[in-house]
Simulated scan of single mutants.
Amino acid sequence: MVFRKTHWSAAALCTALVANAVSAEPVFQTPTQVPAARSALATRVTFNALAMAGGRMVVAGQRGHILLSEDGAAWKQAQVPVSSDLTALSFPTPNEGWAVGHEGVILHTSNGGESWDRRLDGKQAAALILKAYGTPGRTDDPAAQRLKVDAEAFAAQGADKPFLDVWFEDSEKGFAIGAFNLILRTEDGGKTWTPWLDRIDNPKGLHLYAVRRAGGAVFIVGEQGLVLKLDREGQRFVNVPLPYQGTLFGVVGTKAVTVVFGLRGNALRSTDGGATWARVDTGVNAGLASGLVRPDGAIVLVSQAGDVLLSTDDGASFARVKVANAAPTFAVAQQGKGTLALAGVGGVRLQQVK
Rank of each mutant, 00 (worst) to 15 (best):
E96V: 14
V348N: 00
D85S: 10
V59I: 06
K148Y: 04
V105T: 10
N111W: 09
Y244R: 15
D170L: 12
V105A: 07
A53S: 03
W196A: 11
Q224D: 10
G274Q: 14
V100L: 13
V259P: 04
R63S: 10
G225T: 14
R269I: 04
F163V: 15
E103K: 05
W98M: 15
V59Q: 00
A289F: 08
T135C: 12
L230A: 11
V280I: 03
T329Q: 05
A143M: 14
G122C: 14
D117Q: 09
V293P: 13
T247A: 12
P328H: 05
V353N: 01
D121L: 02
S270T: 04
G64C: 02
T15V: 15
Q79R: 12
L350H: 01
E103F: 08
A267L: 13
K148R: 10
D117S: 12
A278E: 13
T15F: 08
F47I: 11
L184H: 11
G265M: 08
A88I: 03
D313F: 06
L226Y: 06
L182T: 10
T6W: 15
A316N: 08
A24T: 15
G174L: 11
A11F: 10
G137T: 15
D296G: 01
L226H: 07
H7F: 07
G64I: 03
N48L: 11
T186R: 11
A144L: 05
A331V: 06
T282K: 03
I183N: 01
H7T: 08
R4V: 14
G253T: 08
E114F: 03
G174F: 04
D71M: 00
E25D: 06
A53I: 02
L288P: 11
R294G: 06
R119L: 09
P295N: 15
V221R: 04
A324F: 10
T139I: 05
W277I: 04
F180E: 15
L164N: 03
L147Q: 03
Q235F: 14
L41Y: 10
Q351P: 03
A324V: 06
L292K: 00
A36R: 04
V82M: 02
G134N: 14
A78V: 07
F47M: 08
V82T: 12
P94V: 07
V238Q: 13
A40L: 06
G306C: 05
T46W: 02
G273C: 11
L184Y: 01
A343L: 00
L120F: 13
S9N: 14
N239Y: 14
G283D: 13
E169V: 09
T339K: 00
F28L: 11
T87Y: 03
L310W: 05
G297V: 12
K354D: 14
S115Q: 05
R320L: 09
T6N: 10
D188E: 14
G216H: 10
N266I: 04
R213S: 02
L164F: 09
D71S: 00
S84K: 02
V227Y: 02
W75C: 02
A16T: 13
A176L: 11
